[in-house]
Design a protein around this nucleic acid. Structure first.
Length: 583
RNA sequence: UGGGGUGUCGCCAAGUGGUAAGGCACAAGGUUUUGAUCCUUGCAUGCGUUGGUUCGAAUCCAGCCACCCCAGCCA
């Protein structure tokens, strides 16, 4: 593609009009600051597991963590929570980093990895064993499940619970050295098998997995679990506010248990704050409701399956709720940020209406996308008074209100194209477009009158013969009102393009509902419509073209950078215009 | 039937004892060479429910109801 293209798909800045609303996390941080809880510091982190692509749900968390830090002069780390190498890969690490940058955020320093704390984590485990707070357990996963009890019944102690400290240290060392098979032993915390909070029934901290890790290679064959790793990683990085979603709420006692049992000095000494003058205060976990969107599936498992079974054309299919997909669809980073802010942050389970997302992108593109004309379903119109080789150059603003967006030239020729839906022989009530003998304004040009309807042998309308009112360029017609305005393009100067119309992927509000056995039952068969015979005005393909446009009266579109080729551009419809006429 | 949460307009959501913000959606007007945008107006005598405390309650207390999460060596 053309290097000189003006990139308008990038960061157009946060909408200054977007009101920042108070929420319980902002309030809590303000209170902590007032109490001088962390020595005035605010340090957050976004901790994705590199096992999939980021989606709009992650965007909420990203925006929350980065925004709340920035608002308070704080920092936000990016940390890959990579404790399960079986599911993770470098490909995901790369895409996550790229998506976050695209969204417009810069993390503090280099990206972190939980795996870079594996040495410290191991030493802390030895420390816990030394305090008689952890033990090596030989129960299989299945046995452990039986011992754990149920929601209503307490669990039973593992037969290995009273193993000596010396034996536990020795066994953990041998686990680490690869002496045992996967699953034969685990390291568990010694808490309370009768706790009503199942998370506290001697949770597993280490498991044996003879598998290479995308960051640490073959160095380890034991890997720490999320619960054990996350709190310590937060503490090592000097995180003050550890924000996560609601389902981790009952893990919070464990998060605190681990950090409180460890010697504070031993944590501080390996932390980023080791040499700082800040009071070292343990991080605190706060939970918020994750984002749900109607007509959308956010579950990673299903998204992955849709990609693998070709229900969609990849993680970046414009119908996907992934950031990669939304980007390709034409969503701007600012629109996504504004959307996340408008949705708010709270603790109640809620499902946000798609209309909010659609409003966010329309709001942004209305201000930032230049206008152009594209005829989707062409109908030839002959302007009978023009000579066959005539060409008029009409100047038109790129934006109806923002002069700074400049102007472009529209070529008007004897044969032009209009959309078939803008002509009706028998118009419905209220129709404001072209009808036989009627008049309509060609956007940016003259008022024309339909003098003759030419049909083929099948009786289908083949072309229209129209006369133009020369006295209507840039002024209202005299003695009558012409209500309708339609878009058009020169038949000879227009450029053929492919246009893809996207619609929601699912046709039910809650495709993740338990009532739906298979998500494929509710796929929208019309989620993608490919139109091959579309024609755009030449400015869209010229030297100074943009990525995103409003094709007037049709919607917002962006050039597909992957499938567009030199002489055949492909445009993706980002979103339609609001349409109060509802055709 | 154990534990942890949540219930404020169709959808998000502020509000933390002084008499229900805001956004989306919707509706009605106005402007308009995009049936767009923009502007104006309307939209909870009511805060899951029932009692109680109080001069005063969405806010405090008690009971009840509904929904969500937890029994991975996933995160």
């Amino acid at each position: 593609m053309n290097d000189s293209n003006t990139d308008n798909s990038g960061d157009s800045g946060a909408n200054p009009d977007t009101k920042v609303s108070s929420n319980f996390i902002r309030n809590k941080i303000a209170q902590d600051l007032a109490d001088n809880k962390h020595g005035g510091r605010v340090h957050t982190r976004f901790p994705p597991e590199p096992n999939g692509f980021l989606h709009i749900g992650h965007a909420k968390s990203i925006c929350l963590n980065f925004t709340v830090a920035a608002e308070n002069g704080g920092l936000c780390n990016l940390r890959f929570d990579d404790t399960n190498p079986a599911k993770e890969s470098q490909e995901f690490v790369n895409s996550i980093e790229e998506n976050i940058r695209w969204l417009g955020f810069n993390w503090n320093g280099d990206a972190r990895y939980s795996s870079s704390y594996f040495d410290a984590l191991y030493e802390f485990a030895v420390q816990l064993i030394g305090k008689n707070l952890a033990y090596v357990c030989s129960l299989s996963a299945e046995e452990a499940r039986e011992y754990r009890g149920s929601l209503t019944e307490p669990g039973r102690n593992s037969p290995d619970r009273d193993r000596s400290i010396e034996d536990n240290v020795d066994l953990l060392k041998r686990m680490k050295e690869g002496e045992f098979e996967d699953g034969s032993y685990s390291l568990r915390a010694k808490i309370d098998m009768a706790s009503p909070n199942i998370t506290l029934r001697d949770p597993v901290f280490y498991r044996i997995r003879h598998i290479a890790h995308h960051q640490t290679g073959d160095k380890w064959c034991i890997y720490p679990t999320y619960d054990y790793t996350h709190c310590i990683s937060d503490a090592i990085e000097g995180i003050t506010h550890s924000l996560c979603t609601l389902e981790f709420e009952e893990h919070r006692p464990l998060y605190n248990w681990i950090l409180e049992k460890l010697d504070l000095d031993s944590i501080k000494s390996v932390s980023d704050l080791a040499d700082s003058e800040f009071d070292y205060v343990l991080p605190e976990q706060t939970e918020f409701a994750k984002l749900k969107l109607n007509y959308t599936i956010m579950g990673k498992r299903t998204l992955r399956e849709m990609v693998e079974t070709n229900v969609v054309d990849g993680w970046d299919d414009p119908r996907m709720p992934t950031l990669a997909g939304m980007r390709r669809r034409g969503f701007s980073p600012a629109s996504i940020r504004n959307f996340c802010e408008s949705v708010g942050v709270a603790r109640s389970d809620s499902v946000v209406d798609m209309a909010m997302l659609e409003h966010a992108i329309r709001d942004d593109l209305d201000k930032n996308a230049p206008r152009a004309m594209c005829v989707m379903n062409p109908l030839k119109v002959v302007l009978t008074e023009l000579e066959a080789d005539a060409e008029e150059s009409l100047e038109m603003s790129n934006h109806p209100k923002l002069e700074e967006m400049g102007k472009r030239v529209l070529p008007l020729t004897r044969e032009i194209l209009i959309d078939r839906s803008d002509f009706e022989e028998i118009p419905p009530a209220g129709f404001k477009r072209l009808i036989p003998g009627g008049e309509v304004r060609l956007r940016g040009a003259y008022v024309i009158r339909c003098d003759e309807v030419v049909k083929n042998s099948e009786g289908e309308v083949e072309e229209l013969h129209c006369s133009i009112d020369r006295n209507t360029l840039g002024k209202k017609p005299e003695g009558r009102k012409v209500k309708g305005v339609i878009h058009w393009v020169s038949a000879s100067k227009g450029v053929p393009v492919t246009v893809r119309l996207y619609d929601r992927l699912f046709n039910v509000e809650n495709p993740e509902s338990k009532k739906i056995e298979d998500y494929r039952e509710c796929l929208n068969p019309d989620s993608l419509t490919v139109l091959e015979g579309c024609v755009v005005e030449p400015s869209v393909c010229g030297e100074n073209s943009f990525n995103s446009y409003q094709f007037e009266r049709e919607g917002y579109f962006c050039r597909d950078e992957i499938d567009s080729i030199e002489d055949k551009l492909v445009f993706n419809r980002t979103i339609t215009l609001r349409d109060s006429w509802a055709s």
